[in-house]
Design a binder for these strands. Structure first.
Length: 466
RNA sequence: GGGGGCAUAGCCAAGUGGUAAGGCAAGGGACUGCAAAUCCCUCAUCCCCGGUUCAAAUCCGGGUGCCCCCUCCA
């Protein structure tokens, strides 16, 4: 089955057909590293991490590139305020970014290029655009001539006139046209800068993605993605630059995810109503954050509420207990072939899962398939006689869909207990045999205080961490 | 002024013509020495008003409320 995805460029769902064979080239706009990332930023990275994992599962060879914007106005301002150098500030927040992403289970991109390490590539692009008449230099600044691209506005579906009539276009008398945007900005005294044919300066925001995408993925890429607020002007401008530069179609599919709202407002750094991942993960299970981000379709808005995150922690417990149930049942299972009933059910579930994900990456439905699997597994575990091989197959299914693709389930066994706890558990088993329930309950309560929950099953007593 | 989006149970949420998925929470039952876990059951006329249709949460028209983009922002 082919994967269908909503393309902002055409405003329709299209079948994913990579430019070459089964190779998918993906570029996702990464963070501007002047601060810690917030949960809204994390939505992009978590969601496209799942897209990448799913496409890999489908057999595509995915090359995933995500940049760091490590020089721009905001970085310069933040660095000045703190009295540190821009590279030092960037370094700090890049490290922080990776810490947050590791916690959320986001895998590293194949390449994480930084803007400041690709200045020559950007200068080359800018020079090319000037040579072709798509850009012009004024007093050390270089601007892109938006009117020179006849289909400028095609991504955001706005005509030049519509864009111009917008009341919020900044007035800059140096530009030929208000819609023109900076490719290169002349350095002000004391600012970090690089040499260029137009004097000392630094790149504009948009050109870095064009330059780095081309360097690592080529003239044309398959998927280009980011948050909806990047659609205009950032992605629109990237298209304009890249296509004027190379003469090729920049990206086939443009994917944009919805925002996270705080109350009735978009969560954004400029509004100051942000909730940082760094702080959230101290208070909540990071997987619950990941679950929260995947619980709604990626193009729909999500409202952030602390008690919603708590809800997802509760849901996560079912994922954890089913794994515990399967593992524990394994100890009293027999040898034999995997049951054909198990194979058949897992096949159905796999189909349902793929159907959900192939439908524009409907993670909400994919997760509900996971719960169908949980129910099936718990039923299976309750049978009198089950084979180890059947249980293994079910665990394997969860590994692929719950862990490898969605990153919501943990399949690793719990760590070993210490000897004191083990002794207490032993003592309680003994007490129960002697029907000394008062002592048994006493021990169970005490272990609970120590964070260990005991459960008596037909296959014996087992424990788990609270 | 132009361009989009959202409104489904206490909460999260899927569903784009065929009679409301799934999860959290809650209540009842089974199982248990008691629990826990698990399983079963219960819990929505889909923002409002019209219209089209044998049939509408889904399509059309008109409202109401909220959000976003056209400026840095995921």
């Amino acid at each position: 089955m082919t994967t269908r995805l909503y393309n902002t460029l055409t405003r329709t769902r299209e079948e994913l057909r990579p430019l070459t064979d089964n190779k998918v080239k993906m570029y996702v706009c990464g963070p501007t590293v002047y601060n810690y990332i917030h949960i809204g930023n994390a939505r992009v990275f978590v969601f496209f991490d799942v897209v990448r994992r799913y496409l890999q599962y489908k057999g595509f060879e995915v090359t995933y590139v995500q940049n760091f914007t490590d020089v721009d106005d905001k970085l310069i301002k933040a660095a000045q305020e703190e009295g540190v150098a821009v590279p030092e500030l960037a370094e700090r927040y890049i490290a922080a970014y990776f810490e947050d992403m590791d916690a959320l289970g986001v895998k590293r991109a194949d390449v994480h290029p930084r803007a400041t390490e690709h200045i020559p590539e950007m200068i080359e692009a800018i020079q090319n655009l000037i040579d072709k008449g798509h850009a012009y230099e004024i007093n050390g600044d270089v601007y892109f001539r938006s009117l020179s691209k006849e289909d400028y506005g095609k991504l955001s579906h706005q005509s030049i006139d519509e864009l111009k009539s917008g009341a919020r276009i900044e007035v800059n008398e140096r530009k030929e046209n208000p819609l023109d945007f900076a490719l290169w900005k002349a350095a002000k005294p004391g600012e970090i800068s690089w040499d260029s044919p137009w004097g000392k300066g630094r790149p504009g925001w948009h050109i870095e993605c064009s330059a780095m995408a081309r360097k690592y993925l080529g003239d044309s890429i398959d998927i280009h993605a980011g948050g909806m607020d990047l659609c205009f002007p950032h992605h629109e401008n990237e298209i304009a630059q890249s296509e004027c530069w190379t003469g090729e179609t920049f990206a086939q599919y443009w994917l944009h995810n919805g925002y996270i709202n705080m109350g009735n407002e978009k969560m954004s750094k400029s509004l100051g109503n942000i909730v940082r991942v760094k702080e959230l993960r101290e208070e909540y299970e990071p997987r619950a954050l990941r679950y929260f981000l995947l619980s709604a379709h990626y193009r729909n808005p999500i409202s952030f509420r602390y008690d919603t995150i708590r809800q997802f922690e509760g849901a996560l417990e079912r994922f954890d207990t089913v794994v515990t149930n399967l593992r524990h049942r394994m100890e009293a299972a027999v040898d034999g072939e995997p049951s054909s009933a198990v194979e058949a059910r897992l096949k159905e579930l796999t189909q349902a899962f793929e159907e959900a994900m192939d439908d524009d990456f409907n993670t909400a439905n994919a997760i509900s398939v996971l719960f169908d699997g949980v129910k099936f597994a718990n039923d299976w575990v309750a049978k009198d006689v089950v084979s180890k091989q059947s249980l293994e197959r079910i665990l394997q299914w969860f590994r692929v869909f719950g862990s490898d693709i969605l990153g919501l389930m943990e399949l690793e066994p719990e760590e070993i207990l210490d000897s004191e706890i083990e002794a207490l558990i032993e003592e309680r088993i003994q007490a129960r045999k002697e029907r000394n329930f008062a002592r048994a309950d006493e021990i169970r309560d005490r272990l609970q205080e120590m964070g260990i929950i005991l459960e008596d099953t037909p296959q014996g007593t087992r424990w788990r961490k609270k």
